[in-house]
Amino acid sequence: MKKKVIHFVQCALAKILFFGAVYPLQAQVSNPSSWESFVNSNENRLVSDTFRLQTFGKSEWDNWIFSLNGNSSVIQDKFTMKIPVGSGTTFQPFALSDYNEIKIVVHAAGLELAPKENLFFSVYREGADEKLVGHESTSEKDFLAYKDFIIGKNPNSLSILTLKASSSKEGYYMTDSVYAYGNIPSYSLFSGIGNWNDTILWSHLPPLRHRNALIKGDASITTDTYCKNVAINSGSLKINPVTRFILNESGLIRKRCLSLFRRSNSSFRPHHLP
């Protein structure tokens, strides 16, 4: 007897629309018997994937944990972290596995800065700790307009640091988005029985946002999950109540496997998200 899929979506925060259409899989993944070889081949093309994001406004997309240092604070109604000079923040390090050409982007600005009240980024990359200068204040009440600070060469940690001068006028820096992205295969294959977020069960990490899921097993979703498309063969997908499963596009599935749901309101787009 074929396995049945139990799919419950209950959401009090957003209206959910039902999409019952079934779409053909792309040619290279139309045959489930070749999924194992496909995901490890050059046909599984790389895509740019934002895998860590923080926008300081309790967004459902925020997944980069951080800790505040000194007098730093989050102003939630302005979706901004305020970093008075002499303060900073540290973001949780992440593993480099399966990603390449990783970059971290900090969208930051500054106000009322005294000379030498500078902005720094402390990162770990290429096997060493580095301290990078982001902005050097050179005048009284110096002003830094919002700009992107891009840190390349595969960093896997980030701390934002600021220097306070003896002539300080209580200046501060601020950021409204910090994210990390890199290249990773577009398709990832789920095998076995377990949770969607269990990295061991996927060939190339759990797919999110712009990536696609191929499922050959019994997967369960217990937290809000977002990806591009899903295909299921010889398996099932169970979504717990009060949990949302949202597809960025209409979806790729095999018939009789899964009903698709999509949120009615527009997707969140952070500033300069690649």
Rank of each mutant, 00 (worst) to 15 (best):
Y172L: 11
V9E: 15
E43M: 10
K103I: 05
N69R: 11
L247P: 00
Y172G: 06
V178M: 07
E43R: 11
W64H: 03
N233Q: 14
Y99M: 00
E170V: 02
I75Q: 15
S191T: 15
I246N: 14
N183A: 14
Y99F: 15
T138P: 03
R263M: 09
Q28I: 12
A145M: 12
G251Q: 03
S73R: 15
E117D: 11
F18C: 06
A213I: 06
D148P: 08
R209V: 13
H272R: 15
I151D: 06
V123G: 03
P207S: 07
G86A: 08
K147Y: 11
A128I: 12
E140T: 08
K131T: 15
I150M: 04
G134R: 01
I104Y: 09
M81Y: 08
L96I: 00
R209L: 14
V133E: 09
I184L: 01
P185L: 01
G217A: 12
A14D: 07
H271N: 11
T89K: 06
N240I: 10
K228P: 02
N233P: 05
G171F: 10
P207R: 03
S73V: 13
N154F: 00
G70P: 09
D77C: 07
N40D: 15
K78C: 05
N31S: 13
I16T: 09
N183L: 15
W202H: 04
I239Q: 09
E36F: 04
S34M: 10
E60G: 14
F190R: 03
L260H: 10
I160P: 02
S137L: 08
A219I: 07
R211P: 01
P207M: 05
A165K: 01
K255V: 09
A109P: 05
N195C: 09
E170P: 00
P115E: 00
D142N: 02
D98Y: 00
L46C: 02
R209H: 14
M81N: 05
I150Q: 01
E43F: 09
L260N: 13
L53Y: 10
N69G: 11
N233G: 08
I184D: 00
I200P: 01
T199E: 15
E170M: 06
Q26T: 04
G127K: 05
I150R: 00
R263C: 08
K153I: 04
G134D: 02
T225Q: 07
S220C: 08
K3T: 08
A165S: 15
E136H: 13
I221L: 09
S220V: 12
V9F: 05
Q10E: 13
L111R: 11
L237G: 01
H107F: 12
V123A: 05
S73K: 13
V74H: 08
L111G: 05
F91G: 10
L273C: 04
V9M: 11
N212A: 08
L144E: 03
T50C: 11
F149S: 00
N154D: 08
T243E: 04
N240G: 06
P270G: 02
R244G: 06
W35A: 01
I184T: 00
G20Y: 10
L17Q: 14
G152R: 10
Q28T: 13
N156H: 14
